[in-house]
């Protein structure tokens, strides 16, 4: 085939593709069923665009401005410079990282153990499932308050136990390390059962004959777990970890209510700057943009992991 006819062919294919695309775009709106579909998603789409996409773009834009009640000035990256030179911001960032790693790590380890143990028929399974869902239903604010009551100096059961065991000297709630640890414990209590339920659902869709085959091949229980269960459970694990990590990363309610706003996470820090003083709104907003971008990075990381796993399978 000559070069000329080849390019001609390609040109024809391209115009074919273009007019085909045009026809299908028109088809999207002339087909009554498809047109109705667009009307049906319109309100939801408007909510998402007007209340999420719009504001986040506006937040990014605003983060380059100093916003005061009497007007705004463009200040390049000054808000971010202010943030990065504020030790409070770094304190909040460290708290958030420690809290996320510790709570998600513990929730995953415990949740997986519980899921594996419970993954069999037993008398009382329904009751166990019902109990597991109770902490999930708690308002996070309320669970924070409940744990604060249990850590409180005079009446708290955990304050009493920690004191008897000599774990902490002085009030738990006045010790910043102990408070962070307390927040992790509270989050682990609230979310582990939920992680266990998610992983249990993942375990229950693994067909029994895979294990049968592994047994025939002489695999030990531990080999069955590492070579069969874990690879097949990977999608459920990644979904659970993705949601838990993003949830922990934006922690706010728990820190606020458990420590009576003494412990800062990135979200608490942002809130304080946005709401407590009009002068600092822009700096808080820059912190909010950073929370958004870091969440985006975490989500993409997990989705990439999930995507490659799906291709392998």
């Amino acid at each position: 085939m000559s070069v000329a006819s080849e390019t001609g062919l390609r040109k024809r294919q391209q115009t074919g593709v273009v007019s085909g695309a045009w026809r299908s775009i028109r088809g999207e709106f002339t087909d009554p069923e498809k047109r109705t579909a667009y009307w049906m998603i319109l309100p939801t789409l408007l909510v998402v665009l007007l209340i999420a996409a719009g504001p986040i773009l506006y937040a990014i834009y605003l983060s380059f401005w100093r916003v005061l009640p009497n007007g705004q000035t463009f200040i390049w990256l000054d808000n971010y410079v202010t943030l990065f030179t504020d030790s409070g911001f770094w304190g909040a960032a460290i708290n958030t990282v420690v809290f996320t790693v510790a709570s998600v790590g513990l929730e995953f380890a415990l949740g997986l153990t519980i899921a594996v143990v419970l993954n069999r028929g037993f008398v009382g399974q329904g009751a166990a499932r019902a109990i597991a869902i109770v902490p999930w239903a708690f308002p996070t604010v309320v669970s924070g308050i409940m744990w604060r009551l249990m850590y409180t100096d005079q009446v708290g059961i955990f304050a009493y136990l920690a004191d008897q065991l000599g774990l902490v000297t002085g009030p738990i709630l006045a010790n910043s390390t102990a408070v962070l640890l307390g927040a992790v414990v509270s989050d682990v209590w609230k979310t582990t059962p939920f992680v266990a339920l998610l992983l249990l659902a993942g375990l229950q869709v693994i067909p029994g004959d895979v294990y049968e085959a592994a047994r025939v091949d002489g695999a030990t229980k531990w080999q069955q777990f590492t070579k069969v269960t874990m690879p097949l459970l990977k999608p459920a694990i990644l979904v659970a970890l993705l949601f838990r990590t993003l949830d922990a990363w934006r922690v706010y309610d728990l820190f606020w209510s458990m420590t009576d706003r003494q412990l800062d996470s990135l979200s608490v820090y942002t809130y304080k700057f946005v709401r407590i003083s009009q002068l600092n709104l822009s700096v808080g907003n820059a912190a909010a943009v950073l929370v958004f971008l870091s969440s985006l990075a975490i989500a993409f990381g997990f989705i990439k992991l999930l995507g490659t796993r799906a291709q392998e399978a």
Partner: peptide, 26 residues
């Protein structure tokens, strides 16, 4: 319809969205 998958992804993306990111503009 054509926008089906993009809209599903967009809606799902909201559940990854940190609420605190939009409190200043709101």
């Amino acid at each position: 319809f054509f926008a089906r998958r993009p809209v599903l992804s967009l809606v799902l993306a909201i559940s990854f969205f940190p609420a605190v990111a939009i409190i200043a503009p709101l």
